[in-house]
Simulated assay, not measured.
Amino acid sequence: MYLLEIDQTHNRTHLTLSDHFDESEAKSLLDEFQQRIGELKPDFHVLCDLTTLDEFESEARTHFRELMDYFNGNGVRKIIRITSKPLHDFGLTVMSHFHYGNDVHVITCETFKEAQKHL
């Protein structure tokens, strides 16, 4: 499951992945973000909350990689991930090296309180 929120005032998107995140949800997330990109300006930030994610299906990775490329191609400057489960972050960290440019800062935090320091 996912929830995508856009905060135009702070030029950021808040993305929550929870429970079971599968291929169809990853495709829907990509489609929704592509439709809503106009709500953000270049140099936007992404806050990605993985604290309630139980399973990230391997089939969802293709669309999620496309989303990462779309973020990169549309001016993302900072990605802040919140996860208390290191295994969830490991795969995303590896993918980040291939899908984000050197000017995109990727930060991983264990709590929302810690993430707020980077917003």
Rank of each mutant, 00 (worst) to 15 (best):
E5S: 13
T111V: 08
N72I: 07
T9C: 00
T9A: 13
F21T: 06
H14K: 14
C48E: 12
I82D: 02
I82F: 01
V76T: 13
I37E: 06
V46E: 04
L53F: 05
F71N: 09
H14Y: 10
H14Q: 12
G101S: 15
A115E: 06
F21H: 07
C109P: 06
L29S: 07
E5A: 12
H20S: 13
G73W: 05
E114C: 05
H97Q: 13
G38E: 04
Q35L: 14
A60E: 04
A60G: 12
Q34H: 04
N11R: 08
F112D: 03
S28F: 01
E110H: 10
D7L: 05
F56E: 02
G38L: 07
T16K: 14
H118W: 15
N72F: 01
R81I: 07
E59Y: 02
G101Y: 03
F98N: 03
F33D: 02
K78I: 04
G75P: 08
H10P: 00
R77D: 00
D7E: 11
T52A: 14
L29Y: 02
N74I: 09
E23V: 12
F112Q: 14
F71R: 09
T62I: 12
T62W: 00
M1T: 13
D69Y: 03
D31V: 12
H97S: 11
G73C: 08
E110P: 00
N102R: 14
D69N: 15
Y70C: 07
K85E: 10
N11A: 09
I107W: 01
E23W: 00
I6H: 04
D31K: 13
E66D: 14
D89E: 06
Y70G: 06
L40I: 11
R65A: 04
K78A: 05
E23A: 15
M1E: 09
N102Y: 02
T9P: 00
C48W: 01
Q34I: 08
L30Y: 13
E59M: 09
H63C: 08
D19Y: 06
T13Y: 01
S18R: 15
K41V: 04
M68F: 07
I37Y: 01
M1A: 14
T16C: 03
N11C: 08
F56T: 06
I79M: 15
R61Y: 03
D69L: 15
S84D: 15
L3T: 14
L4D: 03
I107T: 15
Q8H: 03
D43R: 13
L50G: 09
L53S: 08
N11K: 10
L15D: 01
S58K: 09
T9I: 10
T108M: 04
L40C: 09
K113D: 15
T62N: 05
A26E: 05
F44K: 10
R77H: 08
S24R: 14
E25I: 02
Y2E: 02
F64I: 02
R77W: 00
H97A: 11
F33I: 05
E55Q: 10
Y2C: 04
